[in-house]
Design a protein around this nucleic acid. Structure first.
Length: 905
RNA sequence: GCGUGAUUAGCUCAGCGGUAGAGCACCACCUUGACAUGGUGGGGGUCACUGGUUCAAACCCAGUAUCACGCACCA
């Protein structure tokens, strides 16, 4: 075997070096002309100026595992990476910088200059997250990296806009939208999060016009919108107020008579049963307003301050200051009845984290295409969701789907491909609605600007970022104006798997499915794997503001990328959230106990391989494999099968645990220790050669299995141990999974016997170790055991002694020990531990009695089962047999123990 | 209000009809020639609760409680 290994594994250098070698050799590149079966994934594009967090780690590790496993299965793998321009997030970062450094707004710079600055920012920060993904070991085809603002990609956006407009699905209309007063743009419903807020419920009273001193009480949480009230509503069946419908009440300020209307929407039980109607600032109020022909008065400026309608007292005040002020005014007027603490849900802007202001505005809306196909694809199982329960959530959303507000009042993004004739522009843009049918020749909607561009004015708004991401699976693979499909698209679309978080099921997954059907005529992916959400020790989501989000780069630098990958996978069960634990010492240094487990595993593997290296090469023809070797090969065979099964169901945590358990608890704890017997100086060279060969076989196949989880470490060992076969691929990552059984070449009738014999010996070793520990002899390697064997041919004494830490195991059939000699019952026979000065009858009696009690308890349980006639007659035969075997085993044990106790007198 | 999960050892979590498991933490012993990022032995659980189905339930069903999350919302 090849090079010596250093005494400790240093992940950082190894990881960096291997990543570069893979890149240099083009290992990640997908060949669209290959005749291998295609396997493809598109990355959920991260924000171009974002940085890596644990969610990305989880998500991309899974994708990398899938991609690497598929390569090893012999598939042609495309993992297509890229980034997203993230309209609001990126624009606001640049605006923030402008404000801070130059005290300027984007309007001071103008659109063109501002966009130059955003591009600069993107150039500066855009590579960061990509490099972080590389640090993690992601095997993406970087030659195919895409960005949603790439020219070819952008062209796709315009094309689909035009398609949808021509189809009548895209229209411009004056509607109530979710307005973000901080980002100054409309948002889609999905970008609004409801949060419970501690606020106040104000009860105020309005005088009824034309009646003497009659008042009506109204409850509201938003007195600051009072100036926009153009009506008051009650339930039509509410007896208290029935006579008021049709009358008017006096709005306190600015004073005006506003009508009382009836509406089913009103809950008579809530508050006073009377609602103030502000059609410009509430969706429900807007509907009531439209039905009753109420005036719409917008009382806020776009940034959430009171406009001229507020009068001198309120104008210019922020929404929340205005709320207090309005309440004060009512109080002064004697019209505030009471003010109570109240908790209600308020919509917040997901990005800017400020309360949304419902607002009437002119926006572009989309009626979704291919809704039925998308719903059916998931319901019918053409697209598989894992875990499956998300199907229901998806179906529910699809059933209640609302038109999508796609325009954003931003500059960073894809500008809407609509031009208005200059002289008609104002009129067109103010129309209540505008669509393909009503627009006429004064509107140009096209991928290219009109020929006489100077006569036209382009719509200033840009499109929602998700309006570009929903094309990701195909727009990254082809140009929209090509005459025929690209070879990449032909080979790799539809993609195989999509790995993403359930939090973007609506934002992204659902919309991609619709887009896939609309423009490619088929589904965009076959399987969607929804990852866990990573939380902190207290179960909270990770977030910057909580400061509970550890930096994955720091984790990787201290413990290694492979360690983090392995640990995160081991901790993340299918479909459940995962807690990532960060402990801090008193100096504030962070430690990551879960990742340490992965680091320890890497070290364990490294050192076990190092041990193999230290044995050197065989210098004889190998003899027949020892029973220990057969046993470990059998376990490896099961491991390979179990791992393959777990991959079928995407149970990554199970795969990680299987690999861990095999290596640590089977290979290292038992096989490797047993094998040492064959490496002793006086060992038989043929036996040594055979054991070395088995070790190499296990090592080679284990490293192949582990590679997708710990790619760098395994590739390093592959090279250092020269595990590559003569005609094999250049790298482990390009090596095929073996197709032959690891048990090939071993006489199959030997396997069962070897496994049983080894399991008996290991169990006996356990008993012997326990005996030593009970008598405080754990450290004593001079102990001599005497075996009264089950089988007089027993010849595994040397291995037994090595494992049990004993000097000798003497075979004495029918051995009669001096009374009080410690003894253990084992599958290979009775094992005595006669040692001078150790005859302590009471101690031994105690020990045996404790064991006896355990055995009796077990016997009792199994007796109870077997004496139940129903069990014997109705349970499957093999279960009954199993219990009968257990019964006789425990019975024999109890009897023997009893006799041993009796012998002690 | 509707829906979806979770509740198993001190902690983080597997197991999902047939003998309760892992890692960490804990206790004792061990620097023995791969590994102290290690080894050996050990302690620790009425599997949230109440019913039901079954020969058999941590596991299936129904309900309850608590905690999350999603959707819809009462101004």
């Amino acid at each position: 075997m090849a090079e010596e290994l250093s005494s400790n594994y240093q992940p950082n250098e190894v990881e960096a070096a291997w990543y570069q070698r893979w890149l240099d050799a083009g290992c990640f590149h997908a060949d669209e002309h290959s005749d291998r079966e295609a396997y493809s994934i598109v990355i959920p594009p991260p924000n171009v100026t974002g940085i890596l967090h644990l969610g990305h780690v989880l998500n991309n590790t899974i994708q990398d595992i899938l991609a690497r496993r598929a390569r090893m299965e012999g598939k042609e793998v495309l993992w297509l990476p890229g980034t997203d321009h993230a309209g609001i997030a990126t624009q606001s970062k640049v605006e923030q910088k402008l404000r801070k450094e130059d005290k300027l707004t984007r309007h001071d710079l103008g659109r063109e200059k501002f966009l130059e600055q955003v591009w600069e920012w993107k150039e500066k920060h855009g590579g960061i997250i990509i490099n972080q993904l590389k640090r993690l070991g992601c095997s993406c085809d970087w030659e195919r990296e895409r960005f949603t603002m790439d020219p070819e990609y952008s062209k796709w956006i315009s094309k689909i806009f035009v398609d949808l407009f021509n189809e009548g699905l895209l229209y411009r209309g004056k509607r109530m939208v979710n307005w973000c007063p901080k980002s100054l743009t409309a948002l889609s419903d999905e970008e609004v999060i409801m949060k419970p807020q501690k606020s106040k419920l104000y009860t105020m009273r309005y005088r009824i016009a034309g009646e003497k001193d009659r008042w009506v009480e109204i409850a509201t949480t938003r007195p600051e919108t009072l100036m926009g009230d153009t009506g008051v509503a009650v339930h039509p069946d509410d007896k208290r107020y029935k006579d008021l419908v049709g009358k008017t009440v006096i709005r306190p300020f600015p004073e005006a008579e506003i009508p009382v209307v009836a509406s089913d929407h009103i809950d008579p039980e809530f508050g006073t049963g009377v609602l103030k109607v502000t059609p410009a600032h509430d969706k429900a109020d807007f509907d009531i307003g439209v039905k009753n022909g109420l005036e719409i008065i917008d009382v806020f400026t776009p940034d959430g301050k009171v406009n001229g309608h507020g009068g001198p007292d309120l104008e210019g005040l922020d929404r929340f200051e205005a709320r207090r002020k309005a309440a004060e005014k009512l109080e002064e007027m004697g019209q505030l009845v009471k003010e109570e603490d109240y908790e209600n849900n308020v919509g917040f802007s997901e990005r800017a984290d400020v309360p949304i202001e419902p607002r009437i505005s002119m926006q572009w809306f989309l009626k979704y295409p291919c809704k039925d196909e998308a719903a059916e694809a998931v319901a019918g199982g053409d697209i598989q969701f894992r875990p499956e329960r998300w199907k229901k959530t998806f179906a529910h959303w699809m059933e209640n789907i609302q038109d999508w507000c796609v325009s954003r009042q931003l500059w960073w993004g894809h500008q809407i491909p609509v031009w208005y004739k200059k002289d008609k522009s104002e009129e067109l843009q103010n129309r209540e609605s505008l669509d393909a049918e009503s627009a006429g020749a004064d509107l140009h909607v096209g991928v290219d600007p009109p020929e006489d561009a100077e006569n036209w004015e382009r719509d200033p708004d840009v499109l929602d970022t998700w309006f570009s991401s929903w094309l990701w699976p195909f727009a990254t693979m082809s140009d929209c104006d090509a005459d025929e499909k690209s070879d990449t698209l032909k080979k790799f679309y539809p993609t195989t798997d999509l790995v993403t978080g359930p939090d973007i099921l609506f934002f992204w997954v659902a919309r991609m499915i619709m887009a896939g059907y609309r423009w490619e005529g088929q589904l965009p992916f076959k399987n969607v794997f929804f990852t866990s959400i990573i939380r902190d020790k207290q179960g909270r989501k990770l977030s910057k503001s909580l400061g509970n989000s550890p930096d994955p780069l720091h984790v990787m630098d201290s413990l290694g990328a492979d360690a983090m990958r392995f640990s995160v996978m081991r901790a993340a069960p299918l479909g459940n959230d995962v807690r990532f634990i960060v402990d801090k010492d008193k100096d504030g240094n962070e430690s990551y106990p879960q990742v340490e487990e992965g680091r320890n595993f890497a070290t364990k593997i490294w050192n076990a391989v190092r041990f193999r290296q230290m044995q050197g090469e065989a210098d004889a023809q190998p003899g027949k494999p020892a029973i220990y070797a057969i046993d470990i090969l059998k376990k490896l065979d099961s491991l390979e099968k179990n791992v393959a099964n777990a991959y079928e169901d995407y149970r990554f945590n199970e795969i990680a645990s299987l690999l861990y358990e095999f290596w640590w608890n089977q290979y290292c704890d038992w096989f490797l220790e047993a094998a040492k017997q064959d490496f002793a100086e006086d060992a038989d060279p043929a036996a040594k050669a055979a054991t070395l060969a088995s070790m190499d076989r296990v090592l080679r196949r284990f490293v192949i299995l582990l590679h997708p989880f710990m790619p760098h470490l395994t590739e390093e060992l592959w090279e250092k141990c020269a595990l590559r076969e003569e005609d094999g691929a250049e790298f482990l990552m390009l090596t095929r999974l073996p197709s032959d059984s690891v048990l090939d070449g071993i006489e199959s009738d030997k396997i069962g016997g070897a496994v049983k014999a080894v399991s008996d010996i290991y169990e006996a070793v356990g008993r012997a170790r326990n005996l030593k520990a009970e008598y405080n002899l754990a450290a004593n390697r001079n102990v001599k055991f005497i075996l009264d064997p089950e089988d007089t041919d027993f010849s595994e004494g040397p291995v037994f002694c090595r494992l049990a830490g004993a000097k000798e195991l003497e075979l004495q059939p029918g051995f009669e020990a001096e009374s009080g000699v410690p003894v253990a019952l084992t599958p290979i026979g009775k094992i005595y531990m006669p040692l001078e000065g150790l005859i302590d009858k009471d101690a031994e009696k105690n020990r045996l009695t404790k064991e006896m009690e355990k055995a009796e308890a077990e016997l009792k349980k199994v007796n109870a089962k077997l004496s139940n006639e129903n069990f014997v007659s109705r349970a499957p035969e093999e279960v009954v047999q199993e219990n009968k075997d257990r019964q006789s085993e425990w019975k024999a044990k109890v009897e023997e123990l009893q006799q041993m106790i009796d012998n002690l007198g």
